[in-house]
């Protein structure tokens, strides 16, 4: 399996002296569905901006499918499709023209460009709007237009910077299934998102970045295993006056017919259910209290913050 994206010791210092990236190293395998997560200002967009040639790097190395952006930028760009965070098309141009023009920038002749544009606008449910100026589209449609534009030259690696920001739930789900299909067809996808359930639902590998440094870079399962505790909310049939006592599991009665059970990483849920069953407590439904990835994300970021504060005090 080839490496779709290889980043090595990447640094970015902006003109005002702000160090946005402190020498990060990252690898994304071909065919992966990869999430780059981090709070606002963590360095996600700077990283993707450098990969897509929108931001000049200070130092370090970036390769897209083995093509170094310093030595072989044209080939690197040919393999790359970019969906930015902000709308960056001419709002007065027609939807079809925007996609065809982008294909032209990649050297695709007009006839093929028009066919590709029709194909992707159809797949993203925008064909009936193809003759309208882009400003007439809704926010969700504009996001889909940017995805169609990024795909029109058939890139092997697609970078999406918060592709579902401001999109309603139904549309978000349909974009998830579209991106999953695109990934199944063999394209590598890297996305940044603030919706951690999105990363958990779609991605196989995850990197967490904060203040220009990679805090974690691992398989999603391995990452989630690092959660020492997980809290489950159980809806129970009938009424309880107090929380049942379960050996090895702290339990709280949080509402009428609702329990919260803390499950340590090494323990199994089956045992908790067996104990509840023996006490005659019937569980009608269950869910995790918070998104697991969100929990881990918050923990890692706050640990890093505490570490930096401590270092500052010690210094």
């Amino acid at each position: 399996m080839a490496t779709a994206l290889a980043i090595e010791s990447l640094r970015k210092v902006y003109g005002n002296g702000f160090e946005a990236l402190k020498g990060i190293t990252l690898e994304v395998e071909e065919g992966d569905f990869f999430a780059l997560l981090g709070p606002n200002g963590a360095g996600k967009s700077t990283t993707l901006g450098i990969v897509s040639s929108l931001v000049n790097k200070t130092s370090g190395k970036v390769e897209v499918f083995g093509h170094d952006i310093d030595k072989d930028l044209v080939k690197a760009k040919l393999n790359l499709g970019v969906v930015p965070q902000e709308f960056n098309f001419n709002q007065f141009e027609k939807v079809f023209d925007i996609v065809v023009t982008q294909a032209g920038y990649y050297g695709i002749p007009a006839k093929i460009a028009k066919n590709n544009a029709e194909k992707y606008l159809n797949e993203l449910g925008l064909w009936d709007k193809h003759d309208q100026p882009a400003r007439m589209l809704s926010g969700g449609m504009k996001r889909r237009l940017m995805i169609a534009r990024a795909l029109v030259h058939d890139p092997k690696l697609i970078i999406l910077d918060e592709p579902t920001a401001g999109v309603d739930i139904e549309l978000r789900r349909s974009m998830w299934s579209f991106l999953t299909e695109v990934n199944k067809e063999g394209k590598t996808i890297i996305l940044t998102t603030h919706y951690l359930e999105e990363a958990e639902a779609l991605c196989r590998n995850i990197a967490i970045i904060d203040r220009g440094e990679i805090l974690e870079h691992a398989n999603k399962r391995d990452l989630l295993r690092k959660l020492h505790n997980e809290t489950f909310v159980l809806d129970i049939a009938g009424q309880l006056s107090q929380a049942p006592q379960l050996e090895g599991y702290p339990v709280r009665l949080t509402g009428e017919g609702q329990l919260e059970v803390d499950v340590a990483g090494e323990r199994s849920l089956n045992d908790a259910f067996r104990q509840l069953d023996s006490l005659g407590v019937e569980v009608s439904s269950m869910r995790t209290k918070t998104n697991r990835l969100e929990e881990l994300f918050i923990r890692l970021v706050s640990e890093e913050k505490e570490k930096q504060q401590k270092e500052a005090v010690d210094a």
């Binding site: 930028l73 960056n88 920038y105």
Partner: peptide
């Protein structure tokens, strides 16, 4: 300038146009 202002210039910058 309009391309810069609307960020449409990014369409060109990400593409392999010399």
């Amino acid at each position: 300038f309009g391309m810069k202002f609307q960020h449409c210039i990014e369409e060109l910058l990400v593409a392999p146009v010399p």
